[in-house]
């Protein structure tokens, strides 16, 4: 959970919108070395229940990327004028406003997915990863870098979310994004012309259960830490 990026101070002569090695690291680090879910253990709360299907997970990831990146930008712009005592409330108001925007946009664009995600869009507010990045990075860094950091963390978070969703939808329902890939559709007894690949595959109902998401995250952590032993925590 410790974050080493916070103490990287920006030299005053740096250009406002530079995109060098450091800035690139801000985006790529959260994919592996500093992944929000598997390393920082933040933001598991609001999203794992949406990963039974790929489409809601993609929408959820986009929403989280948007909220983190822009709240980081806004808080970073305001960072010198926020009193320390009320910073939590200020951050929550900024996040809640952005989440409201996301909710209204989604409601207008795709009502089905909106219904599927139900309360989980609202729960982005209390998604620890958003506040975690604001506290750890945006309060101490310039707007452009904070924006990139938010973007990177949102993407790293979305990547895990989509991996889980792909596994769960493929093995739980035999489909991806609603298209049948393996196994048979539910109506194969009636409609015998639809013969799919791997017709012998029976859907694994465990994958549809919430518990499967926990197993998959556990296994992802296991694989990741076996491949990169430096990530194993000492405790």
């Amino acid at each position: 959970m410790a974050d080493t990026q916070t103490d990287v101070a920006v030299k005053p002569k740096d250009k406002a919108f530079a995109f060098g090695k450091k800035e690139k690291a801000l985006i790529t680090d959260p994919f592996n070395d500093n992944n929000p879910i598997t390393i920082q253990v933040l933001g598991i709360c609001s999203a794992l229940a949406v990963t039974t299907l790929v489409l809601p997970s993609v929408v959820m990831s986009i929403a989280v990327v948007f909220v983190i990146a822009f709240s980081a930008l806004i808080i970073s712009l305001l960072r010198n004028s926020i009193p320390k005592q009320v910073r939590m409330i200020v951050q929550l108001v900024v996040i809640a406003t952005l989440v409201t925007v996301v909710e209204l946009v989604l409601k207008a664009l795709n009502y089905d997915v909106y219904k599927q995600l139900s309360v989980f869009i609202g729960l982005i507010i209390t998604n620890c990863i958003v506040m975690g990045r604001l506290e750890a990075f945006s309060m101490a860094n310039r707007p452009w870098r904070s924006f990139l950091d938010g973007l990177g963390n949102g993407l790293g978070y979305g990547a895990i979310l989509i991996i889980i969703a792909v596994v769960r939808e493929l093995f739980g329902k035999g489909s991806l994004l609603g298209y049948q890939i393996i196994g048979n559709t539910d109506d194969f007894m009636i409609n015998t012309t639809t013969s799919w690949m791997f017709g012998w595959y029976a859907n694994n109902n465990l994958m549809v259960l919430p518990a499967a998401a926990m197993f998959i995250v556990g296994i992802i952590i296991w694989i990741q830490r076996s491949m990169y032993p430096r990530l194993v925590d000492a405790s």
């Binding site: 598997t38 926990m214 952590i221 925590d233």
Partner: peptide, 20 residues
Amino acid sequence: IPPALRGLGIAFILTGLMGI
């Protein structure tokens, strides 16, 4: 527990089992 699974990893799997 296998070193890579210690701490966080096993906590996730345990939570899954408790959920079941």
